[in-house]
Write a protein that binds this DNA or RNA. Structure first.
Lengths: 240, 240
DNA sequence: CGATAAGTTGATTCGCATCAACTATTGTGG
DNA sequence: CCACAATAGTTGATGCGAATCAACTTATCG
Protein backbone atom coordinates (compact mmCIF):
# COMPACT_ATOMS: atom_id res chain seq x y z
CA UNK A 1 0.00 0.00 0.00
CA UNK A 2 1.33 3.45 -0.88
CA UNK A 3 1.67 6.24 1.60
CA UNK A 4 -1.29 8.49 2.27
CA UNK A 5 -1.92 11.68 0.38
CA UNK A 6 -1.49 13.46 3.70
CA UNK A 7 2.25 13.46 3.66
CA UNK A 8 2.73 15.35 0.40
CA UNK A 9 -0.10 17.65 1.52
CA UNK A 10 1.58 18.40 4.79
CA UNK A 11 5.07 18.75 3.37
CA UNK A 12 3.83 20.65 0.37
CA UNK A 13 2.30 23.25 2.66
CA UNK A 14 5.83 24.10 3.75
CA UNK A 15 7.77 24.09 0.52
CA UNK A 16 7.40 23.21 -3.12
CA UNK A 17 7.71 19.50 -3.91
CA UNK A 18 9.03 18.69 -7.33
CA UNK A 19 8.04 15.61 -9.31
CA UNK A 20 10.94 13.51 -8.11
CA UNK A 21 10.15 14.40 -4.49
CA UNK A 22 6.54 13.41 -5.04
CA UNK A 23 7.52 10.19 -6.66
CA UNK A 24 9.94 9.33 -3.87
CA UNK A 25 7.12 9.82 -1.41
CA UNK A 26 4.52 7.99 -3.46
CA UNK A 27 6.61 4.86 -3.68
CA UNK A 28 7.12 4.46 0.06
CA UNK A 29 5.37 1.27 1.09
CA UNK A 30 3.27 1.49 4.24
CA UNK A 31 1.24 -0.74 6.50
CA UNK A 32 -2.01 0.78 7.68
CA UNK A 33 -3.44 0.04 11.09
CA UNK A 34 -6.49 1.08 13.08
CA UNK A 35 -6.55 1.92 16.80
CA UNK A 36 -9.34 2.64 19.26
CA UNK A 37 -9.47 5.10 22.10
CA UNK A 38 -6.83 4.44 24.72
CA UNK A 39 -4.75 2.00 22.66
CA UNK A 40 -1.02 2.48 22.80
CA UNK A 41 0.06 3.20 19.26
CA UNK A 42 3.70 3.35 20.29
CA UNK A 43 5.23 2.23 23.57
CA UNK A 44 8.10 3.88 25.42
CA UNK A 45 11.36 1.93 25.26
CA UNK A 46 13.65 0.75 22.49
CA UNK A 47 12.43 2.21 19.24
CA UNK A 48 10.82 -0.14 16.73
CA UNK A 49 12.20 -0.25 13.22
CA UNK A 50 9.42 1.91 11.87
CA UNK A 51 7.88 5.33 12.15
CA UNK A 52 4.27 6.21 11.77
CA UNK A 53 2.07 8.87 10.35
CA UNK A 54 -1.32 9.76 11.81
CA UNK A 55 -4.01 9.64 9.12
CA UNK A 56 -7.19 10.27 11.06
CA UNK A 57 -8.12 10.90 14.67
CA UNK A 58 -5.88 12.33 17.36
CA UNK A 59 -3.13 10.96 19.57
CA UNK A 60 -1.39 12.00 22.77
CA UNK A 61 2.23 11.84 23.84
CA UNK A 62 2.08 10.54 27.39
CA UNK A 63 5.03 10.75 29.76
CA UNK A 64 5.28 8.92 33.04
CA UNK A 65 6.99 11.07 35.58
CA UNK A 66 7.08 9.75 39.08
CA UNK A 67 3.67 8.23 39.62
CA UNK A 68 1.93 10.71 37.42
CA UNK A 69 0.92 10.64 33.83
CA UNK A 70 1.48 13.82 31.86
CA UNK A 71 0.52 14.72 28.33
CA UNK A 72 3.24 16.65 26.52
CA UNK A 73 1.72 16.95 23.08
CA UNK A 74 -1.32 16.25 20.97
CA UNK A 75 -0.98 15.06 17.41
CA UNK A 76 -3.41 15.59 14.57
CA UNK A 77 -3.75 14.03 11.11
CA UNK A 78 -0.70 14.58 8.96
CA UNK A 79 1.67 14.49 11.93
CA UNK A 80 4.40 11.94 12.23
CA UNK A 81 3.93 10.29 15.59
CA UNK A 82 7.49 9.20 15.96
CA UNK A 83 9.63 10.38 13.15
CA UNK A 84 12.01 10.65 16.11
CA UNK A 85 12.27 6.95 16.50
CA UNK A 86 13.95 6.70 13.16
CA UNK A 87 16.96 8.46 14.67
CA UNK A 88 16.60 7.87 18.39
CA UNK A 89 17.43 4.58 19.99
CA UNK A 90 14.83 4.84 22.73
CA UNK A 91 11.53 6.59 23.06
CA UNK A 92 10.82 8.17 26.44
CA UNK A 93 7.04 8.29 26.22
CA UNK A 94 4.02 6.43 24.95
CA UNK A 95 1.80 7.58 22.15
CA UNK A 96 -1.84 6.84 22.92
CA UNK A 97 -4.89 7.01 20.68
CA UNK A 98 -7.33 9.77 21.62
CA UNK A 99 -10.52 8.47 20.09
CA UNK A 100 -10.22 6.15 17.10
CA UNK A 101 -7.24 6.62 14.80
CA UNK A 102 -5.86 5.36 11.56
CA UNK A 103 -2.11 5.17 11.29
CA UNK A 104 0.39 4.31 8.56
CA UNK A 105 3.67 2.65 9.47
CA UNK A 106 6.79 3.30 7.42
CA UNK A 107 9.93 1.20 7.84
CA UNK A 108 12.97 3.16 9.02
CA UNK A 109 15.04 1.91 6.08
CA UNK A 110 12.72 3.80 3.76
CA UNK A 111 13.40 6.99 5.64
CA UNK A 112 17.11 6.35 5.72
CA UNK A 113 16.99 5.84 2.00
CA UNK A 114 15.34 9.23 1.57
CA UNK A 115 18.10 10.83 3.61
CA UNK A 116 20.67 9.21 1.32
CA UNK A 117 19.00 10.11 -1.94
CA UNK A 118 16.72 13.09 -1.51
CA UNK A 119 18.38 15.87 0.50
CA UNK A 120 15.55 18.28 -0.11
CA UNK A 121 12.94 15.84 1.17
CA UNK A 122 15.19 15.08 4.10
CA UNK A 123 15.22 18.73 5.04
CA UNK A 124 11.45 18.85 4.83
CA UNK A 125 11.06 15.82 7.06
CA UNK A 126 13.50 17.38 9.47
CA UNK A 127 11.40 20.50 9.30
CA UNK A 128 8.37 18.48 10.45
CA UNK A 129 10.17 17.53 13.62
CA UNK A 130 11.23 21.13 14.14
CA UNK A 131 7.68 22.36 13.87
CA UNK A 132 6.68 19.70 16.34
CA UNK A 133 9.32 21.04 18.70
CA UNK A 134 8.09 24.58 18.20
CA UNK A 135 4.58 23.55 19.11
CA UNK A 136 5.88 21.95 22.28
CA UNK A 137 7.83 25.04 23.24
CA UNK A 138 4.83 27.28 22.76
CA UNK A 139 2.77 24.79 24.75
CA UNK A 140 5.32 25.06 27.57
CA UNK A 141 5.20 28.84 27.43
CA UNK A 142 1.41 28.83 27.46
CA UNK A 143 1.30 26.44 30.41
CA UNK A 144 3.62 28.67 32.38
CA UNK A 145 1.86 31.94 31.81
CA UNK A 146 -1.82 31.54 31.05
CA UNK A 147 -4.79 30.97 33.32
CA UNK A 148 -7.08 28.02 32.90
CA UNK A 149 -9.62 29.61 30.55
CA UNK A 150 -6.85 31.19 28.50
CA UNK A 151 -5.01 27.91 28.20
CA UNK A 152 -8.09 26.16 26.95
CA UNK A 153 -8.63 28.94 24.45
CA UNK A 154 -5.00 28.80 23.37
CA UNK A 155 -5.27 25.07 22.93
CA UNK A 156 -8.37 25.44 20.77
CA UNK A 157 -6.73 28.17 18.69
CA UNK A 158 -3.73 25.94 18.14
CA UNK A 159 -5.93 23.08 17.01
CA UNK A 160 -7.91 25.38 14.76
CA UNK A 161 -4.70 26.52 13.11
CA UNK A 162 -3.12 23.08 12.80
CA UNK A 163 -6.24 21.38 11.51
CA UNK A 164 -6.62 24.22 9.02
CA UNK A 165 -3.27 23.32 7.46
CA UNK A 166 -4.51 19.82 6.65
CA UNK A 167 -7.93 21.00 5.54
CA UNK A 168 -9.98 19.78 8.48
CA UNK A 169 -11.73 23.04 9.36
CA UNK A 170 -15.20 23.92 8.03
CA UNK A 171 -16.77 27.25 8.98
CA UNK A 172 -14.41 27.62 11.90
CA UNK A 173 -15.53 24.36 13.40
CA UNK A 174 -13.86 20.99 13.70
CA UNK A 175 -14.23 17.51 15.15
CA UNK A 176 -12.85 17.00 18.59
CA UNK A 177 -12.75 13.43 19.92
CA UNK A 178 -12.17 14.80 23.39
CA UNK A 179 -14.36 15.05 26.46
CA UNK A 180 -14.01 17.43 29.36
CA UNK A 181 -12.17 14.85 31.40
CA UNK A 182 -9.72 14.31 28.55
CA UNK A 183 -9.19 18.02 28.20
CA UNK A 184 -8.53 18.25 31.92
CA UNK A 185 -6.08 15.40 31.56
CA UNK A 186 -4.29 16.99 28.63
CA UNK A 187 -3.93 20.41 30.21
CA UNK A 188 -3.28 19.08 33.70
CA UNK A 189 -6.35 20.60 35.34
CA UNK A 190 -9.01 19.03 37.48
CA UNK A 191 -12.27 18.23 35.76
CA UNK A 192 -14.14 20.69 37.95
CA UNK A 193 -11.84 23.53 37.12
CA UNK A 194 -11.84 22.69 33.43
CA UNK A 195 -15.58 22.81 33.44
CA UNK A 196 -15.66 26.23 35.05
CA UNK A 197 -13.03 27.58 32.68
CA UNK A 198 -14.98 26.29 29.68
CA UNK A 199 -18.10 27.98 30.99
CA UNK A 200 -16.16 31.20 31.12
CA UNK A 201 -15.26 30.90 27.42
CA UNK A 202 -18.81 29.92 26.54
CA UNK A 203 -20.13 32.86 28.52
CA UNK A 204 -17.97 35.18 26.45
CA UNK A 205 -19.46 33.68 23.30
CA UNK A 206 -16.08 32.50 22.06
CA UNK A 207 -16.50 28.73 22.10
CA UNK A 208 -19.24 26.21 21.50
CA UNK A 209 -18.46 22.59 22.10
CA UNK A 210 -21.12 19.96 21.50
CA UNK A 211 -20.91 16.23 20.97
CA UNK A 212 -17.38 16.11 19.77
CA UNK A 213 -17.58 19.20 17.61
CA UNK A 214 -16.03 22.56 18.44
CA UNK A 215 -17.04 25.85 16.89
CA UNK A 216 -15.11 29.09 17.33
CA UNK A 217 -17.49 31.91 16.35
CA UNK A 218 -14.74 34.52 16.48
CA UNK A 219 -11.29 32.94 16.25
CA UNK A 220 -9.51 36.29 16.23
CA UNK A 221 -11.18 37.46 19.40
CA UNK A 222 -10.36 34.16 21.06
CA UNK A 223 -6.76 34.38 19.90
CA UNK A 224 -6.50 37.89 21.30
CA UNK A 225 -7.94 36.85 24.65
CA UNK A 226 -5.57 33.91 24.92
CA UNK A 227 -2.40 35.53 23.55
CA UNK A 228 -2.35 33.09 20.68
CA UNK A 229 -0.12 34.12 17.82
CA UNK A 230 -0.54 31.73 14.93
CA UNK A 231 2.64 32.79 13.19
CA UNK A 232 4.68 30.08 14.83
CA UNK A 233 2.70 27.48 12.88
CA UNK A 234 2.50 29.14 9.46
CA UNK A 235 5.91 27.91 8.73
CA UNK A 236 7.14 28.28 5.24
CA UNK A 237 10.41 26.48 5.08
CA UNK A 238 13.79 27.86 4.18
CA UNK A 239 14.69 24.33 3.21
CA UNK A 240 15.35 24.75 -0.48
CA UNK B 1 38.38 30.14 11.95
CA UNK B 2 37.43 26.48 12.19
CA UNK B 3 34.52 25.16 14.16
CA UNK B 4 35.00 24.37 17.81
CA UNK B 5 35.99 20.96 19.07
CA UNK B 6 32.61 20.90 20.84
CA UNK B 7 30.62 19.88 17.83
CA UNK B 8 32.48 16.64 17.10
CA UNK B 9 32.49 15.97 20.83
CA UNK B 10 28.77 16.43 21.11
CA UNK B 11 27.93 14.53 17.94
CA UNK B 12 30.50 11.85 18.66
CA UNK B 13 28.79 11.14 21.98
CA UNK B 14 25.80 9.99 19.98
CA UNK B 15 27.30 7.97 17.20
CA UNK B 16 30.66 7.13 15.69
CA UNK B 17 32.12 9.80 13.42
CA UNK B 18 34.35 8.51 10.68
CA UNK B 19 37.28 10.48 9.29
CA UNK B 20 35.32 12.01 6.45
CA UNK B 21 32.63 13.16 8.89
CA UNK B 22 35.29 14.72 11.08
CA UNK B 23 36.90 16.41 8.18
CA UNK B 24 33.61 17.77 6.91
CA UNK B 25 33.02 19.28 10.34
CA UNK B 26 36.55 20.56 10.79
CA UNK B 27 36.45 22.53 7.56
CA UNK B 28 33.29 24.47 8.38
CA UNK B 29 34.27 28.11 8.67
CA UNK B 30 32.83 29.97 11.64
CA UNK B 31 32.73 33.43 13.08
CA UNK B 32 33.14 33.60 16.83
CA UNK B 33 31.38 36.19 18.94
CA UNK B 34 31.17 37.06 22.61
CA UNK B 35 28.01 38.10 24.49
CA UNK B 36 27.37 39.39 27.99
CA UNK B 37 24.53 38.66 30.34
CA UNK B 38 21.18 39.74 28.95
CA UNK B 39 22.34 40.28 25.37
CA UNK B 40 20.09 38.95 22.66
CA UNK B 41 22.13 36.39 20.77
CA UNK B 42 19.30 35.77 18.34
CA UNK B 43 16.16 37.84 17.88
CA UNK B 44 12.69 36.54 17.08
CA UNK B 45 11.58 37.22 13.53
CA UNK B 46 12.86 36.33 10.07
CA UNK B 47 15.73 33.90 10.46
CA UNK B 48 19.22 35.14 9.67
CA UNK B 49 21.30 33.21 7.17
CA UNK B 50 23.30 31.54 9.88
CA UNK B 51 22.99 29.19 12.81
CA UNK B 52 25.01 29.25 15.94
CA UNK B 53 26.64 26.93 18.40
CA UNK B 54 27.08 27.77 22.07
CA UNK B 55 30.70 27.34 23.11
CA UNK B 56 30.71 28.55 26.70
CA UNK B 57 28.16 29.95 29.12
CA UNK B 58 24.44 29.40 29.03
CA UNK B 59 21.55 30.85 27.06
CA UNK B 60 17.77 31.00 27.39
CA UNK B 61 15.01 30.65 24.85
CA UNK B 62 12.62 33.43 25.73
CA UNK B 63 9.06 33.58 24.41
CA UNK B 64 6.80 36.58 24.64
CA UNK B 65 3.28 35.48 25.29
CA UNK B 66 0.81 38.23 25.95
CA UNK B 67 2.63 40.67 28.18
CA UNK B 68 4.67 38.00 29.85
CA UNK B 69 8.09 36.68 29.22
CA UNK B 70 8.52 32.92 29.48
CA UNK B 71 11.60 30.76 29.30
CA UNK B 72 11.04 27.57 27.33
CA UNK B 73 14.53 26.11 27.36
CA UNK B 74 18.04 26.55 28.64
CA UNK B 75 21.01 25.82 26.43
CA UNK B 76 24.45 24.69 27.52
CA UNK B 77 27.80 24.48 25.73
CA UNK B 78 27.69 22.19 22.72
CA UNK B 79 24.07 23.03 21.94
CA UNK B 80 23.04 24.59 18.69
CA UNK B 81 21.06 27.67 19.60
CA UNK B 82 19.13 27.81 16.39
CA UNK B 83 19.89 24.93 14.16
CA UNK B 84 16.17 25.44 13.53
CA UNK B 85 16.72 28.66 11.73
CA UNK B 86 18.55 26.87 9.01
CA UNK B 87 15.24 25.27 8.04
CA UNK B 88 12.63 27.59 9.48
CA UNK B 89 11.78 30.90 7.87
CA UNK B 90 10.92 32.66 11.13
CA UNK B 91 11.97 32.23 14.69
CA UNK B 92 9.24 32.65 17.30
CA UNK B 93 11.44 33.48 20.28
CA UNK B 94 14.60 35.27 21.34
CA UNK B 95 17.74 33.57 22.56
CA UNK B 96 19.28 35.55 25.40
CA UNK B 97 22.68 35.17 27.05
CA UNK B 98 22.51 33.93 30.63
CA UNK B 99 25.82 35.17 31.97
CA UNK B 100 28.65 35.67 29.50
CA UNK B 101 28.72 33.42 26.46
CA UNK B 102 30.91 32.59 23.53
CA UNK B 103 29.13 31.60 20.36
CA UNK B 104 30.18 30.37 16.92
CA UNK B 105 28.13 31.33 13.87
CA UNK B 106 27.90 28.99 10.90
CA UNK B 107 26.44 30.09 7.60
CA UNK B 108 23.33 28.17 6.55
CA UNK B 109 24.90 27.31 3.19
CA UNK B 110 27.49 25.25 5.03
CA UNK B 111 24.76 23.26 6.71
CA UNK B 112 22.86 22.84 3.46
CA UNK B 113 26.05 21.56 1.92
CA UNK B 114 26.36 18.96 4.64
CA UNK B 115 22.82 17.78 3.98
CA UNK B 116 23.70 17.41 0.29
CA UNK B 117 26.95 15.59 0.80
CA UNK B 118 27.04 13.87 4.17
CA UNK B 119 23.79 12.03 4.91
CA UNK B 120 25.15 10.49 8.07
CA UNK B 121 26.20 13.83 9.51
CA UNK B 122 22.86 15.23 8.48
CA UNK B 123 21.11 12.57 10.51
CA UNK B 124 23.29 13.41 13.50
CA UNK B 125 22.53 17.10 13.25
CA UNK B 126 18.87 16.25 12.93
CA UNK B 127 19.31 14.12 16.02
CA UNK B 128 20.55 17.17 17.94
CA UNK B 129 17.31 18.97 17.25
CA UNK B 130 15.36 15.88 18.29
CA UNK B 131 17.17 15.68 21.60
CA UNK B 132 16.45 19.34 22.10
CA UNK B 133 12.79 18.59 21.53
CA UNK B 134 12.91 15.70 23.97
CA UNK B 135 14.36 17.93 26.63
CA UNK B 136 11.57 20.41 26.08
CA UNK B 137 8.91 17.72 26.34
CA UNK B 138 10.33 16.41 29.58
CA UNK B 139 10.52 19.98 30.85
CA UNK B 140 6.82 20.36 30.04
CA UNK B 141 6.01 17.15 31.85
CA UNK B 142 8.05 18.19 34.86
CA UNK B 143 6.39 21.59 34.98
CA UNK B 144 2.99 20.00 34.96
CA UNK B 145 3.52 17.44 37.66
CA UNK B 146 6.25 18.42 40.11
CA UNK B 147 6.20 20.75 43.09
CA UNK B 148 8.57 23.67 43.35
CA UNK B 149 11.43 21.92 45.18
CA UNK B 150 11.13 18.90 42.92
CA UNK B 151 11.21 21.02 39.81
CA UNK B 152 14.34 22.76 40.96
CA UNK B 153 15.91 19.40 41.70
CA UNK B 154 14.82 18.03 38.36
CA UNK B 155 16.29 21.05 36.65
CA UNK B 156 19.61 20.57 38.44
CA UNK B 157 19.66 16.87 37.61
CA UNK B 158 19.04 17.69 33.96
CA UNK B 159 21.91 20.17 33.94
CA UNK B 160 24.16 17.71 35.72
CA UNK B 161 23.44 15.12 33.05
CA UNK B 162 23.72 17.47 30.08
CA UNK B 163 26.90 19.13 31.26
CA UNK B 164 28.33 15.69 31.92
CA UNK B 165 27.99 14.82 28.23
CA UNK B 166 30.22 17.73 27.28
CA UNK B 167 32.67 17.13 30.11
CA UNK B 168 31.77 20.08 32.30
CA UNK B 169 31.16 18.20 35.55
CA UNK B 170 33.89 17.77 38.19
CA UNK B 171 33.10 15.84 41.36
CA UNK B 172 29.39 16.24 40.80
CA UNK B 173 29.68 19.99 40.75
CA UNK B 174 29.41 22.52 37.96
CA UNK B 175 29.37 26.23 37.18
CA UNK B 176 26.00 27.88 37.20
CA UNK B 177 25.85 31.47 35.98
CA UNK B 178 22.40 31.78 37.50
CA UNK B 179 21.10 33.57 40.55
CA UNK B 180 17.97 32.82 42.49
CA UNK B 181 16.02 35.47 40.64
CA UNK B 182 17.10 33.92 37.33
CA UNK B 183 16.09 30.49 38.50
CA UNK B 184 12.70 31.86 39.53
CA UNK B 185 12.42 33.43 36.11
CA UNK B 186 13.35 30.24 34.29
CA UNK B 187 11.00 28.00 36.21
CA UNK B 188 8.22 30.55 36.44
CA UNK B 189 8.21 30.86 40.23
CA UNK B 190 8.36 33.91 42.42
CA UNK B 191 11.72 34.67 43.98
CA UNK B 192 10.36 34.12 47.48
CA UNK B 193 9.00 30.72 46.66
CA UNK B 194 12.15 29.70 44.82
CA UNK B 195 14.17 30.61 47.85
CA UNK B 196 12.04 28.49 50.15
CA UNK B 197 12.12 25.55 47.77
CA UNK B 198 15.92 25.77 47.55
CA UNK B 199 16.14 25.80 51.33
CA UNK B 200 14.14 22.62 51.35
CA UNK B 201 16.65 20.91 49.04
CA UNK B 202 19.57 22.26 51.05
CA UNK B 203 17.94 21.07 54.27
CA UNK B 204 17.79 17.58 52.82
CA UNK B 205 21.50 17.80 52.07
CA UNK B 206 20.94 17.29 48.35
CA UNK B 207 22.13 20.60 46.95
CA UNK B 208 24.78 23.20 47.70
CA UNK B 209 24.83 26.32 45.61
CA UNK B 210 27.45 28.96 46.25
CA UNK B 211 28.79 31.79 44.16
CA UNK B 212 27.81 30.40 40.83
CA UNK B 213 28.81 26.86 41.59
CA UNK B 214 26.41 23.98 42.26
CA UNK B 215 27.31 20.76 44.00
CA UNK B 216 25.07 17.70 44.16
CA UNK B 217 26.41 15.51 46.98
CA UNK B 218 24.13 12.63 46.06
CA UNK B 219 22.85 12.92 42.49
CA UNK B 220 21.01 9.61 42.63
CA UNK B 221 19.08 10.54 45.74
CA UNK B 222 18.18 13.88 44.20
CA UNK B 223 17.09 12.19 41.00
CA UNK B 224 14.91 9.80 42.98
CA UNK B 225 13.30 12.62 44.94
CA UNK B 226 12.57 14.58 41.78
CA UNK B 227 11.49 11.73 39.50
CA UNK B 228 14.39 12.47 37.21
CA UNK B 229 15.18 9.67 34.79
CA UNK B 230 18.33 10.47 32.88
CA UNK B 231 17.71 7.92 30.18
CA UNK B 232 16.01 10.40 27.92
CA UNK B 233 19.33 12.22 27.55
CA UNK B 234 21.73 9.32 27.16
CA UNK B 235 20.76 9.05 23.60
CA UNK B 236 22.76 6.79 21.43
CA UNK B 237 21.58 7.37 17.95
CA UNK B 238 20.12 4.85 15.57
CA UNK B 239 21.35 7.15 12.83
CA UNK B 240 23.84 4.92 11.12
C1' DC C 1 32.28 52.75 55.17
C1' DG C 2 28.01 53.39 52.92
C1' DA C 3 25.68 51.69 48.66
C1' DT C 4 23.78 48.32 45.96
C1' DA C 5 22.56 43.80 44.94
C1' DA C 6 21.49 39.02 46.57
C1' DG C 7 19.27 36.32 49.61
C1' DT C 8 15.77 35.48 53.44
C1' DT C 9 11.45 35.83 56.00
C1' DG C 10 6.48 36.79 57.02
C1' DA C 11 1.54 38.05 55.96
C1' DT C 12 -1.91 37.94 52.79
C1' DT C 13 -4.27 36.64 48.47
C1' DC C 14 -5.54 33.84 44.59
C1' DG C 15 -5.78 29.97 41.41
C1' DC C 16 -6.58 25.48 41.18
C1' DA C 17 -6.99 20.64 43.40
C1' DT C 18 -9.81 17.79 45.89
C1' DC C 19 -13.86 15.72 47.42
C1' DA C 20 -18.58 15.27 47.31
C1' DA C 21 -23.03 15.90 45.71
C1' DC C 22 -26.04 16.62 42.15
C1' DT C 23 -28.16 16.99 37.15
C1' DA C 24 -28.36 15.86 32.34
C1' DT C 25 -27.52 12.77 28.75
C1' DT C 26 -26.79 8.50 26.61
C1' DG C 27 -27.23 3.68 26.42
C1' DT C 28 -29.35 -0.97 27.48
C1' DG C 29 -32.36 -4.81 28.44
C1' DG C 30 -37.02 -6.07 29.35
C1' DC D 1 -41.25 2.43 25.08
C1' DC D 2 -40.09 2.60 29.66
C1' DA D 3 -36.90 1.76 33.75
C1' DC D 4 -32.70 1.87 35.10
C1' DA D 5 -27.67 2.14 34.78
C1' DA D 6 -23.81 4.29 33.33
C1' DT D 7 -21.50 8.15 31.74
C1' DA D 8 -20.78 13.18 31.01
C1' DG D 9 -21.32 17.47 32.73
C1' DT D 10 -22.24 20.90 36.61
C1' DT D 11 -22.01 23.00 41.18
C1' DG D 12 -20.38 23.95 46.00
C1' DA D 13 -17.19 23.77 50.08
C1' DT D 14 -12.71 23.43 51.65
C1' DG D 15 -7.52 23.17 51.55
C1' DC D 16 -3.00 23.76 49.64
C1' DG D 17 0.68 25.58 46.70
C1' DA D 18 2.50 29.40 44.97
C1' DA D 19 2.07 34.64 43.89
C1' DT D 20 2.51 39.03 45.70
C1' DC D 21 4.06 42.65 48.50
C1' DA D 22 6.86 44.32 51.97
C1' DA D 23 10.40 44.20 55.26
C1' DC D 24 14.61 42.65 56.62
C1' DT D 25 19.50 40.50 56.53
C1' DT D 26 23.65 39.33 54.41
C1' DA D 27 27.15 39.69 50.88
C1' DT D 28 29.84 42.44 47.51
C1' DC D 29 32.22 46.16 46.13
C1' DG D 30 33.52 51.00 45.23
Amino acid sequence: MAISRFLPLFLGARDHLDDRDREALATIPVRREQFSHGDKIITAGPTPGESCLLISGMALRVHDIGKQRVVSALQVPGDFLDLHSFLLATLDHDVVAQGDCAVEFVRSEELTRITEERPHLTRLLWLCTLIDAKVTRVWTAAAASLKAHERIGHFLCELHARLGIVGLIRDDSFNMPIEQKDLADILGFSVAHTNRALQDLRGRGLVTWNKGRVHLPDPDALAALCSFDSRYLETISAAR
